[in-house]
Nucleic acid binder design. Sequence first.
DNA 1: GAGCACTGC
Length: 918
Amino acid sequence: MEESNDPEKKILDFAEEMNSTVQVRASYENLDEDRFITEEKIFRDPVSVRFNKPKNSFTKRRRKSEEEDDDADEDKKKAKLCSEDMVLDSDEIIRLRNVSRQEYVKNREKKKVEALRDEIKDEIMVSDGVKLTEKEEIEFRYKKELYELIKQTEDDDDVDEYRIPDAYDQEGCIDQKKRFAVVAQRYSERRSSMRGVTEQEAWEDHQAQKGTVRFGSKDKKKVIDGYEFVFDDLASFVEESSEVKTGRHRGCYSRTVAEKAREERELLPIHAYRDELLKLIEENQVLVIVGETGSGKTTQIPQYLQEAGYTKRGKIGCTQPRRVAAMSVASRVAQEEGVKLGHEVGYSIRFEDCTSDKTVVKYMTDGMLLRELLTEPKLDSYSVIIIDEAHERTLCTDILFALVKDVAKVRPDLRLIISSATLEAKKFSDYFDSARIYLIPGRRYPVEKFFRRLPEVDYLETVIRTVFQIHQTEPTGDILVFLTGQEEIETAETKLKLRMIDLGTKGSEIIISPIYSNLPTELQAKVFEPAPKGSRKVVLATNIAETSLTIDGIRYVIDPGYCKINSYNPRTGMESLLVTPISKASAEQRAGRSGRTGPGKCYRLYNVKDLEPTTIPEIQRANLASVVLTLKSLGIQDMFNFDFMDAPPENALLKALELLYALGALDGNGEMTKVGERMVEFPVDPMLSKMIVGSEKYKCSAEIITIAAMLSVGNSIFYRPKNQQVLADNARMNFYVDTEKVGDHIALLRVYNSWKDVNYSTQWCYENYIQSKSMKRARDIRDQLRGLLNKIGIELTSNPNDLDAIKKAILAGFFPHSAKLQKDGSYRRVKEPQTVYVHPNSGLFGAPSKWLVYHELVLTTKEYMRHTTEMKPEWLIEIAPHYYKLKDIEESQPKKTQRRREKARTLKVDTNKKKAKR
DNA sequence: GAGCACTGC
């Protein structure tokens, strides 16, 4: 929204915004979603300066209007709020502008002080591991003391002394022991000097007295400078929820585990709906269930069905999008039923089948059910299929929808339950021929939401300010910040630490915990350690914290509203990660993360009404080669008219068909070939599975499955910490040293074999800057692939010294990914008019080979080939004579792809014809 | 010299 100076327009804009918020709320209420959720509040930009008045900036204020009209009806109140808000708003802006002008005069002085501060910081960083000489030491201490003195005189009301936390070691890492010692020391000092009043309390009181303008409703006190929170009276909501919560835990002590479990089951919200639910399932073949968080649907519904006798007809299968979810839910249910996990209740995930003949309630990942469908197309052993978390729309669930919908038609006895969040329920119902929607209320704590109307210029800066404002004005509880990626998390961490130095030691310590999936496991574990008493944990997380893992103790969420989304461009065959605004659904999910263990608060740095309702489903932005092969294997001929809930882009399907045809998995009629049938056994990308199948000819299947496993793990094999990049790179290059040029594929093979030679040592991984987690995963995948080789009758043969044979096997799957060196050092794809570059992390970077085969293309700052290996051009013709002709390798002029496109089109026409015949 | 959201089989 554009800011205008016209006050009337402002009011109108604001009113409009209010209306839309109300409407959103109303629609939630229809679905009984908003029971405990408070209305979204607005918080505004903290205009005040932070260095020069760090304390004054957190002034408690109280707004008159909110004290008056408790009983006024909602609309009236809002109108009033918004007009007063506007008056206050412009007054406030004028005042703050004046302040800001005055500050400008002081700027020079301030800058001097800042320069001094920077010097101190630099010194801390530069001294990196080097012991200071005595003279330097004295000089440094002098600077420090000088700065502290200035700080003290600046803040005349400052009761604390400024101190650089000495918990930081030379690398800027935190020595936790030292830091906690500091915390403890500070607290004991305070206890004696302030007679039991904590520093925080004293400071808050002090600030409260100083406040000039007061506002905030009478029940809500804390308001931070610049952030104007617009509050409603929420007391009743808060009470309601806490009542429910205490009820749940009442009388649960000193009971046996089984009794307790049963009692807890009966206290779940879903319990009241049990009979009605069973009746509906009996009467309707497909049922869409909107089960809110905390309703107990995932654990209870399968048990109800079992009690009602459904397991006599067959198993109850419940899919989850994540492995851990499948495992933990199964374990919980086994415990509730008092059976051993893997007996009546079990789970099945890749690499781990914890089920037996007895198993009647089976939790599994969605991909696992998809695999099962390949061998059991009618799902005969199941009586009920529950697709949980359907709203997440993973690639696998989207395909499952279509398949189970089909199966349901031929199996009237099969029951389908689709469990979804509110927003998509209607869509699911429509897709499943107007299936009934049944709503089960959840139970959770209220989450207050604050939002900013205008998008941020520098959201990281606002995030950091908000962290400190929460830290200094809100009661205990940890803070969770959603950021987009590793780099941003690292930046935020540095900034937070610097700001901590700036602000001195106000209040308690902040413990910063980063978490993202590429972080080594040992470091990930730290995020779950509770913060020491009196300190506050600030978790900087990627999307991993949105659904995949839950951190206890989070009470505040700061959500800038962005995440990275992978999208595949079928035209160029390139993947890229884009920073994208999140969807409304994601925003809700993120906010909910603050209300898991108690009432929470969520600070949104955006306006939720600017967001799309849901994220684009994965099926519309993924490489579909694997999907198409799976569907073909299930006998689905016509991809273009397949009943997808959201159809993937047509050119993505076309591209996938083209590729599968080129690989020989499909014949000219679009039917599965023998090769295709072998390929589909391997749960990897079709090019990889073709490579594996092709390795039989070159007698190097042992090497090839290793390479395939290493490539499947992704690019998280090599660990490259920020401060040891040179060492890490050197360690990596060790795997490339040889008499002849070694490509990335061969290097990966060597990494694996070296690891195997040292008996899969974790220590070896550390020493070589390799992530042991990734290596273990590669071993799991390799073991699985080896088993499947056996299944399709390919012998495991090793041919370690014939690199040419290995390269030829790679080409058997990856021949479409060929590139030729250009005069300017760039590469050009042989069959596509596309310029590409060797990735700087490749061993072949800076050591050009004329012809390359690459694993994948990624678009970052340039079009990069990731994982490249040298090859000979004549191999292309030897291995893929149907794809390459002599003229392709004689001159690397871009070739027309017309012929292949035509072929693909005939495929499409053929399949259409077939469908018409049927 | 670039930069790796997150899952899943």
